[in-house]
Simulated scan of single mutants.
Amino acid sequence: MVLIACAALAVAGESGVAKENAPEEDFQRYSVVPILGYTEETEFQVGVMALLFLKSDEAAGKVPEIGLTAYGSTRGQLQLQLEPYYYMFHDRVSIWGLLKYQDWVAGYYGRGNDPDIDVFTNFNRKKFQFGTKVESRVGLPSTLKYGIEVHAEYTEIDFEQGEIEDLPDEHSGWRNGVGYLFGFDSRDNINWTRHGFLVQWQQMFYSDRLGDYTFDVESLDLRVYSSLSKTTTTAVGFLWQRADGDVPFDMLAGPDGICRFRGVESLYFGDNQAVIMQAELRQYIWWRLGAHFFFEGGKSGRYFSELVRNDWHRSIGAGALLGLNLKQTLFARADISWVDFDHLGLSFYVRQAF
């Protein structure tokens, strides 16, 4: 990693502190973030993140938004993503959607907790993905929620010649599934949480009756947030994942490299089970600028007993935050991490990591 640059353009809300009763003409309609970066995985990477904000049907309601991400690299990688969020019934129902196309070159480091960063085999992945998640608090106290999620994906994977000879099955074809979630959620804001808790259990079931493969994945997500001052927040997270059945190698339990254990390729260490722990200090500085410092640990294993015995991967890092919509406390971030105190990683995304 050597470079990342970004900037934001907005039609309103330029002040550092958003006003509670901003006039109608101050409503911010969009933000645009151009990005230039370099990593060993992508080489030079160029892209843009854009957000379109829609006026809420209620005066104090959450603002619906439509996100568009497009980026490519000099390594021949391309990703296009459309991501809408919408809220209904006094914000007691939220709807998230995803439409993504990916033509990507990535590295396969083998299965398990002990990869060698210098030993890998590249694979080409073309993926078209659709997903939607509906969360609701209707009929329950405001801190409890339930929901359903639908995942539909067609993937083509081809391995290149490389240093790893024991390659998994590509699992090209349809991976279609449906799942549910239950949770306790007392967060005051999902974009920049200053205080609250999240406890969420989720299961997804994939079937060869819906697609080409049968497997299931589940996760337990625990988070705690606390305010040290008006502009300083601490966040602590714990994630346990499990995958069972005829699981595609790129859907095993492990880090995603963007939100959970940042700065590594997706599933740099992955297996049937994984656990990831995170701690972060977030600081708003001035205008649209902020920063954070974080520590992350993670490991994977085929069985729970193996997961417990395996060594931790560790990472420390820092990131820059750029306000896209201050009234909604929505920030873009660029993170630099020192993975296993051995190599550097870079990630960027809209919203906080967790």
Results as ranks from 00 to 15, higher is better:
residue 71 Y to K: 03
residue 82 L to C: 07
residue 89 F to H: 07
residue 77 Q to K: 05
residue 75 R to F: 00
residue 95 I to V: 15
residue 87 Y to V: 09
residue 83 E to D: 09
residue 89 F to W: 13
residue 90 H to N: 14
residue 78 L to P: 14
residue 69 T to S: 15
residue 76 G to M: 06
residue 72 G to N: 07
residue 76 G to N: 07
residue 82 L to M: 05
residue 98 L to P: 05
residue 71 Y to S: 08
residue 87 Y to T: 12
residue 97 G to T: 03
residue 92 R to A: 15
residue 76 G to I: 02
residue 77 Q to F: 01
residue 77 Q to W: 02
residue 79 Q to R: 14
residue 96 W to A: 11
residue 86 Y to W: 12
residue 93 V to R: 08
residue 89 F to P: 10
residue 90 H to D: 11
residue 90 H to A: 11
residue 87 Y to H: 10
residue 92 R to N: 14
residue 76 G to Y: 00
residue 78 L to F: 00
residue 87 Y to S: 14
residue 75 R to Y: 02
residue 95 I to K: 03
residue 91 D to P: 14
residue 74 T to S: 03
residue 88 M to Y: 10
residue 97 G to A: 00
residue 79 Q to S: 11
residue 85 Y to H: 09
residue 97 G to W: 00
residue 89 F to Q: 12
residue 87 Y to P: 15
residue 86 Y to S: 14
residue 93 V to S: 15
residue 71 Y to N: 02
residue 93 V to W: 03
residue 93 V to H: 05
residue 80 L to W: 02
residue 70 A to L: 11
residue 81 Q to C: 10
residue 91 D to R: 12
residue 97 G to R: 01
residue 79 Q to V: 11
residue 89 F to C: 14
residue 90 H to L: 13
residue 87 Y to C: 13
residue 78 L to T: 15
residue 74 T to Q: 03
residue 95 I to P: 13
residue 96 W to L: 10
residue 85 Y to L: 06
residue 72 G to H: 02
residue 74 T to C: 00
residue 70 A to K: 03
residue 73 S to M: 05
residue 87 Y to W: 04
residue 76 G to V: 02
residue 73 S to W: 06
residue 71 Y to T: 03
residue 85 Y to F: 08
residue 69 T to L: 10
residue 84 P to E: 04
residue 80 L to R: 01
residue 71 Y to I: 01
residue 88 M to I: 06
residue 91 D to T: 13
residue 69 T to C: 10
residue 97 G to I: 03
residue 73 S to Q: 04
residue 91 D to H: 08
residue 90 H to C: 15
residue 71 Y to H: 04
residue 89 F to V: 15
residue 82 L to E: 03
residue 78 L to N: 11
residue 86 Y to L: 11
residue 96 W to V: 10
residue 89 F to I: 15
residue 87 Y to I: 13
residue 83 E to M: 13
residue 94 S to I: 00
residue 78 L to A: 06
residue 89 F to D: 12
residue 71 Y to D: 04
residue 77 Q to Y: 02
residue 95 I to Q: 08
residue 95 I to L: 12
residue 90 H to M: 12
residue 83 E to Y: 10
residue 75 R to C: 00
residue 80 L to D: 00
residue 82 L to T: 07
residue 85 Y to S: 10
residue 81 Q to P: 12
residue 84 P to L: 03
residue 82 L to S: 04
residue 89 F to A: 15
residue 97 G to N: 01
residue 85 Y to D: 10
residue 96 W to P: 13
residue 71 Y to F: 03
residue 89 F to L: 13
residue 73 S to H: 01
residue 69 T to E: 04
residue 91 D to W: 09
residue 83 E to H: 14
residue 83 E to P: 12
residue 87 Y to M: 06
residue 93 V to I: 14
residue 83 E to W: 05
